[in-house]
C-alpha cells in the first residue's frame, strides 16, 4: 500500500465526523470516497491533505508518518469543487505557483506550464485570468496546477459538482485518462455514485463517519454488503426476509443464516422479469418512458417494486403481471438501518 490511513478519528464537539476509519491507496490507483453529505468523506480528504488536524490514528505514505506534517510539506495536489484559482494571477502564474514555491528555475517552469496546458488541451489561455474562463476551463487549470508539482497523491474534492452536466461528463473522462497516463495515486470525494463508478478502480463507501464497504464498482453494485450501499449505489428493491419467504420463496436458497431482521433481499430493477398474466399477483401502477429504458412501478404482496426493461414496453397501468427473479440475481444485504422496513 502506498497511502494508508489507519484508525482516523475526528470529533467536532459531540459530533463524531470520523470514527476509527482505515483506508488505503495503491500506487497508480484511482479511489473514490463515496457517501451522502455529512458522512465524513471530505473530513477524511482534508485530514489526508493536512488541512484538518487528526484527533486519533495516522496517515502514512510508504510508512512515513504524515500526521504532524503541515499541508505545505506533504507535496500533495488538491482540487476543490469551487476551482479556487488565485484570481489575481494569470493561468500561467497559477500553474507555476507550486513550482515557484519549490524554487524551480524559471526556464523549467515555463516549459512545464506549456506542457501542462497541452495536457489539459487549453494551450491558448496561458495569459488569461481565472475570471475570464468557463467553469470547465477553470477546473482544468486547477487540475494542471495540482499536478504541476508531480504530487505524491492527487486529492479531488467533488471536482465536478459545480459544472454543467455535459462538461461534467467530458471532464470525468479526461481526468480519468490523465490519471491513468501519469499514474498519480488519486483519491476523489464525491456524492455521485455514477461518477464514482465511471472513474474509480475502487470505491470506499462511507456513512455516518465510518467505512461501510470497499470494493470495485462492480462489487459494490452487484454485491452490496448493506442496505445503505444497495440504496446508495443505484436503485434497488429492498425486501424483508418475511415478504420474500411468503412471495418469492425460491430466493431463500441463497440467504445466509440469521434472524429475519438481520438480512434483506436486494433485487436490482433490471433483474426482474415481468410476464403479462391475468392471474398475476402484481399490478402495474405506473410506467414511464426514459429513452433507453422503461421504468415500471408495481404493487403486489411484496410491496412496491421498481422494474426496468429495455426495448418497447407493452405494459399498461392497471395491468396484472407475474414476477420472476432468478436466485443468483438476488443479493442478501445486512440491514444496517434502524428504521423498520415496510
Amino acid at each position: 500500500m502506498y497511502l494508508t490511513v489507519s484508525n482516523a478519528t475526528k470529533r467536532y464537539g459531540a459530533f463524531v465526523a470520523l470514527d476509527d476509519v482505515s483506508v488505503s491507496l495503491k500506487k497508480g490507483e484511482f479511489v473514490s470516497l463515496l457517501g451522502p453529505s455529512g458522512c465524513g468523506k471530505t473530513t477524511l480528504l482534508r485530514i489526508i491533505a493536512g488541512l484538518t488536524d487528526i484527533d486519533g490514528g495516522d496517515v502514512r505514505i510508504e510508512d512515513v508518518a504524515m500526521s504532524d506534517m503541515p499541508a505545505r510539506k506533504r507535496g500533495f495536489g488538491i482540487v476543490f469543487q469551487s476551482y479556487s484559482l488565485f484570481p489575481n494571477m494569470s493561468v500561467a502564474e497559477n500553474i507555476a505557483y507550486g513550482l515557484k514555491v519549490r524554487k524551480a528555475p524559471s526556464e523549467q517552469i515555463r516549459a512545464r506550464v506549456k506542457e501542462l496546458l497541452e495536457i489539459i488541451k487549453l494551450p491558448d489561455i496561458i495569459d488569461k485570468y481565472p475570471g475570464q474562463l468557463s467553469g470547465g476551463q477553470q477546473q482544468r487549470v486547477a487540475l494542471a496546477r495540482a499536478i504541476a508539482v508531480d504530487p505524491k497523491v492527487l486529492l479531488l474534492d467533488e471536482p465536478l459538482s459545480a459544472l454543467d452536466a455535459n462538461v461534467r461528463a467530458s471532464l470525468r473522462h479526461e481526468i480519468r485518462q490523465l490519471q491513468r497516463e501519469l499514474k498519480i495515486p488519486t483519491l476523489m470525494v464525491t456524492h455521485d455514485q455514477e461518477e464514482a463508478m465511471a472513474m474509480s478502480d475502487r470505491i470506499i463507501c462511507m456513512n455516518h463517519g465510518v467505512v461501510v464497504q470497499v470494493g470495485t464498482p462492480e462489487e459494490l453494485y452487484h454485491k452490496p454488503a448493506t442496505r445503505f450501499v444497495a440504496d446508495f449505489m443505484g436503485s434497488s428493491n429492498l425486501i424483508t426476509t418475511k415478504l420474500i419467504r411468503e412471495t418469492l420463496p425460491n430466493l431463500m436458497s441463497t440467504r445466509p443464516e440469521g434472524p429475519d431482521e438481520a438480512f434483506d433481499a436486494c433485487i436490482r430493477p433490471e433483474e426482474i422479469s415481468l410476464v403479462e398474466d391475468e392471474s398475476g399477483v402484481a399490478t402495474v401502477t405506473s410506467t414511464s418512458f426514459l429513452g433507453n429504458l422503461n421504468r415500471i412501478d408495481l404493487d403486489g404482496p411484496f410491496g412496491h417494486l421498481l422494474v426496468e426493461t429495455h426495448g418497447p414496453c407493452s405494459f399498461k397501468t392497471g395491468q396484472k403481471v407475474s414476477v420472476d427473479v432468478k436466485p443468483e440475481a438476488c443479493t442478501w444485504v445486512l440491514n444496517d438501518e434502524t428504521e423498520a422496513v415496510t
Binding site: G50, N88, V101
Partner: peptide
C-alpha cells in the same frame, strides 16, 4: 476571502508568509 484559496496555496507548498503576500494581500 474564500479559505480554499489559502488551502490550495498550502497544498502547493506555500507557507503563511507567501500565502499572505501573494494570495491574500491582492484579494
Amino acid at each position: 476571502f474564500p479559505s480554499e484559496l489559502a488551502e490550495a496555496g498550502s497544498a502547493l507548498g506555500a507557507g503563511i508568509g507567501r500565502i499572505s503576500t501573494t494570495i491574500i494581500a491582492p484579494f
